[in-house]
């Protein structure tokens, strides 16, 4: 874990640039991370995804996978690729301030 900052705000990031302490997350930080991921500005459609990740994480302590986004979140895969190109789950998890989805067992 390293001390870092995003737009001047001190935050803890892992080596892939994911927040390690979700309490440090704010919508302003999300917008800055979205800029780094090349998906800024965040629209209502983006926020729908980020909010679903947050709700689901609270319930299950894990970032939802693609099928869960589809089936439980009601967000189709093609929309996720349009909103967060090249790895939607990884990008959306980072912007939402949750850990990097390493993989599944």
């Amino acid at each position: 874990m390293s001390e870092n900052s995003i737009i001047g705000i001190a935050v803890d990031l892992d080596e892939s640039g994911y927040l390690t302490n979700h309490d440090q997350w704010t919508p302003v930080i999300a917008e800055a991370l979205a800029g780094e991921e090349g998906v800024a500005p965040l629209t209502d459609e983006h926020w729908k995804v980020l909010k679903f990740i947050a709700e689901d994480y609270k319930e299950r302590e894990t970032v939802p996978g693609m099928r869960r986004m589809n089936k439980v979140g009601g967000i189709p895969t093609k929309d996720l690729y349009r909103l967060f190109p090249d790895g939607p789950i990884k990008k959306a998890a980072r912007i939402a301030g949750y850990p990097k989805p390493a993989s599944c067992v």
Partner: peptide, 9 residues
């Protein structure tokens, strides 16, 4: 190794 949190679908 870096300890990344495992995520399960």
């Amino acid at each position: 190794e870096t300890a990344t949190q495992p995520i399960h679908n």
